[in-house]
Design a protein around this nucleic acid. Structure first.
Length: 811
RNA sequence: GCCCAGGUGGUGGAACGGUAUACACGCACCACUUAAAAUGGUGUACCGAAAGGUUUGUGGGUUCGAAUCCCACCCUGGGCACCA
């Protein structure tokens, strides 16, 4: 008897060996086909690795190891999304520099990841906070800036007056600051934007080419929210001529966006967003100006959250002295401003059709505006539901002049043509606000001349260094504004009176291109060379949580499209295949959180059970994408399996394996390989358990069968398998062996258990040889005693025989 | 409200038109042991003494045969949400 399975000893031994050998390194000179397997790189938080990280990383590690054994040259890197808020907040509290806490956390993460035996190529490790990295983040900013895809504009942002800082939307919880619960106000600030909307069509259309979870594709589409409609022109007229300058009543046009041009005849008023820019052009014609200004001011104070929190209760103000003409009916209709119309969507103005839009209906009811039905579901009998609620479906037109009787579908283009409108596609997507009034991020490489005009920092001055002479107390201005060094640097390079941009970039910018950097992580001339990009990209498999990926995936896709547009890359989508790992909940079914004290620390599990057990357990929990609850007790099962595996070495010798065992082996080779391809590790593991159980039942097993078993297990539990492999005298690493191939002819069992059904119910199971024909089966089934009992005296109407599977007798 | 995913033993789950409950956890009993741990064995959906019957959220449908496909409803989780 060998000594007992001792994971701690084995894992330390092999961990050391692999570190020395640089296991996992991707080869640049390989003739093998490439494969890029990527995890969403983590934010190195102070609390260390989470068991949720382990799940995704174990899955990609198994996949990577399997693919290496299958003859691929695999790039499987790891790095750090190192800029970010928690480290900076911690610095505000303690005064410890974020760089220090971040790098300490990275160190912890790295150690934890290495303990798990994950085969990352550590020679390619990157951190987004290093000047070598953010130099290229800044280069991307300049690429966008120089191509008119980055611009500065005034924006209405969330502001916490207590923390003296801008908040991201996610940091605003029911209208208040997440940290201090102060009510968040809206503030107009000059902000930098990336023109992601320029790519909205591609961002929708190219989703066709990717192999992603359906729901993720849906979410992307939903977020972009493209809808097709029409822009229609309404002409405003004014009651009163305000100046003596001309005798003419001025005209003004307002464009509205609608997806229902078929309802134009039912447009009984017009609504502009309170922020609509055109209003200032005809302000002087408005007779109730004060009331209007008050409403606009009130709207501006509200956060988006408040505006939507007020549910469907509609507010608004009529612009008195202003009328619009419905271009179809030529009737004069009133004009309102109301905050249910959003300035940033469509044209910021709508034609209100209360009969056929629920929001317009509610507004019309409240303000006593006419509701005119122009669509009915069956022509010519009009339904008349519009007194109770809007009829929002399509149908046939009524009350629409010469268009009466047309279907909505026909009427849409006809009416657009009739009033000279235009087809338009519109999206919900807004440009990406990337300015952050924060310290711990990549500085925006912009300087201002003495007149305040922005200029890009020339490439030769990149990286535009993040200064260190700042304090982390919130003051209402970006921390970089305190830096003497940054100011002096700016004036030294650009001249007296010049000043630096003091905002930093959203960390999502850093993570929008990191997958390129892994291809060529030490390049100091380019973000990555053309050859290296050609060698490795696009990413073949990308794995990460589903929670926060709408934005990350969108931004990363946007960056790739920019690079494509300017000829840096030949592909349009960065991530060909995407899979999510589900969230791992605590044992109590709730989210793991420090405050609930239910967090499972992977280190403790490794100490108690070993890293192989932890990997195996997490993979055995269930389907990768499902949400799962942690259960420490269940680790015993996989640990027992490993102990059984360990003991199998005593059974190896000069043995002949019988046919059933060989069959199970070959079935396992097939199943394990196919399951790993699909990341169905849970079923692959149960197959390996069955195989081990079968082997354990024999008095002895052959060396070759044992070796095949180890090769199948190698991707899942690299430590124990390495040790067992060495113990049978193998010198070369098990992870560099070819994955076993199954033999088709050995998959089939010689003797089969064939169920015989009567009317679909199983009445007996026959043992037959696998080469039995349909006729054999039919005959045998009818002769079967148990079956006789059931069919006696009844007429057999049909016999369905599926060879090798079942017989069903229909009576 | 809209969109997406999903409801299977005491528990995690497997099967995804062909023997429902593989694999594991837990539990019970047995063996080994002075004893315990560890390990191994046997059993374990429900009702029934048995024959047999019932069972994949609920109700219908298609089929020789449905957890699987179709329709309606209920519930859970996720995303979006005044987007004209």
């Amino acid at each position: 008897m060998e000594e007992r399975y001792n994971p701690q000893f084995i894992e330390e031994k092999w961990g050391k060996t692999w570190k020395e050998q640089g296991m996992g390194a991707a080869r640049e000179d390989s003739q093998k086909p490439k494969l890029y397997v990527l995890d969403m790189f983590p934010y190195p938080s102070g609390s260390g690795l989470h068991v949720g990280h382990v799940e995704g990383y174990a899955a990609t590690d198994i996949y990577s190891r399997y693919k290496r054994m299958k003859g691929y040259n695999v790039l499987h890197p790891m790095g750090w999304d190192a800029f970010g808020l928690p480290a900076e907040n911690y610095a505000v509290k303690t005064g410890i520099h974020p760089k220090e806490t971040t790098e300490k956390a990275m160190e912890t993460f790295r150690k934890q990841i290495q303990r798990l035996g994950l085969s990352y190529d550590w020679s390619r490790e990157i951190g987004t906070h290093t000047p070598e990295y953010y130099k290229w983040t800044q280069w991307f900013f300049l690429l966008l800036y120089n191509n008119n895809l980055a611009y500065k504009a005034k924006a209405n942002v969330n502001w916490c007056s207590s923390c003296q800082t801008v908040l991201a939307n996610e940091q605003v919880v029911s209208g208040a600051c997440e940290r201090c619960s102060t009510k968040v106000i809206q503030k107009d600030l000059e902000q930098w934007f990336f023109k992601i909307t320029e790519f909205s069509d591609q961002l929708v259309d190219d989703l066709e080419e990717v192999d992603w979870p359906k729901s993720t594709v849906r979410n992307q589409r939903n977020w972009i929210g493209r809808s097709a409609g029409a822009e229609l022109k309404f002409t405003l007229s004014f009651d009163r001529v305000p100046s003596r300058m001309t005798g003419q009543i001025p005209k003004q046009n307002i464009e509205v966006f609608t997806t229902r041009p078929d309802t134009l005849f039912g447009a009984t008023y017009l609504v502009l967003a309170p922020e609509h820019p055109e209003i200032s052009n005809f302000k002087s014609h408005i007779t109730n100006r004060e009331e209007v200004e008050l409403y606009v001011a009130k709207t501006r104070e509200k956060t988006d959250l408040e505006r939507t929190a007020e549910e469907k209760d509609k507010t608004g103000v009529e612009l008195k002295g202003v009328k619009a003409v419905n271009p179809a009916t030529k009737e004069e209709i009133p004009v309102y401003i109301a905050d249910y119309v959003l300035a940033h969507y469509g044209t910021g103005a709508i034609m209100a059709v209360p009969a056929h839009d629920q929001r317009d209906w509610a507004f019309a009811k409240k303000f006593n505006l006419p509701i005119k039905q122009v669509i009915c579901d069956k022509y010519p009998q009009p339904i008349c539901p519009v007194l109770e609620e809007a009829y929002t479906g399509e149908g046939h037109l009524v009350g629409s002049g010469s268009f009466d009787g047309m279907s909505s579908e026909e009427a849409k283009p006809a009416i657009i043509k009739f009033v000279g409108g235009e087809m338009k596609k519109v999206t919900k997507l807004r440009d990406w606000l990337i300015s952050r009034q924060r310290y711990w991020g990549a500085p925006i490489p912009i300087v201002y001349d003495p007149q305040g005009n922005p200029h890009p920092v020339p490439e030769q001055h990149l990286p535009w260094m993040l200064p260190t002479d700042v304090e982390f107390k919130p003051t209402g201005v970006s921390p970089l504004a305190q830096s003497k060094e940054l100011q002096e640097r700016t004036e030294r390079i650009f001249g007296k009176g010049w000043s630096p941009e003091v905002d930093t970039m959203d960390t999502f910018v850093c993570s929008s291109w990191y997958y390129f950097r892994f291809a060529d992580p030490r390049n100091n001339k380019q973000f990555a060379s053309e050859e290296h990009i050609a060698t490795w990209l696009p990413v073949d498999l990308y794995v990460g949580g589903a929670e926060h990926t709408v934005l990350h995936l969108m931004y990363a896709r946007f960056f790739t499209k920019v690079l494509h547009k300017f000829g840096y890359v030949s592909f349009k989508e960065p991530f060909l295949k995407l899979r999510h790992q589900g969230m791992i909940m605590a044992e109590d079914g709730r989210k793991m959180s420090k405050s609930l004290g239910n967090v499972v620390n992977p280190d403790m599990i490794i100490e108690k059970f070993g890293a192989d057990s932890l990997r195996l357990y997490e993979m055995f929990m269930g389907p990768l994408a499902d949400m799962k609850a942690w259960n420490t007790q269940n680790i015993a099962g996989v640990k027992r399996f490993l102990e059984r595996t360990w003991r199998l070495q005593d059974k190896v010798g000069e043995h002949q394996d019988n046919a059933p065992l060989k069959t199970i082996l070959h079935q396992s080779i097939k199943k394990v390989g196919e399951d790993i391809e699909e990341l169905h590790c849970n079923t692959a593991i149960s197959q390996l358990m069955m195989l081990a159980n079968e082997m354990d039942r024999r008095d002895g097993i052959s060396l070759s069968l044992y070796k095949t078993f180890l090769l199948l297990l190698a991707p899942f539990c690299p430590f124990i398998v390495s040790e067992l492999w060495e113990r049978i005298g193998e010198k070369e690493s098990v992870h560099e062996q070819a994955f076993p191939e199954y033999r088709e002819e050995l998959l089939k069992e010689d003797i089969l258990q064939i169920p015989v059904q009567v009317n679909g119910k199983v009445r007996d199971v026959m043992e037959v040889s696998s080469d039995s024909t349909s006729d054999d089966l039919r005959e045998k089934a009818l002769k079967n005693e148990n079956i006789q009992k059931w069919i006696e005296g009844k007429e057999v109407k049909d016999i369905v025989v599926i060879p090798g599977t079942l017989v069903n007798i229909v009576i």
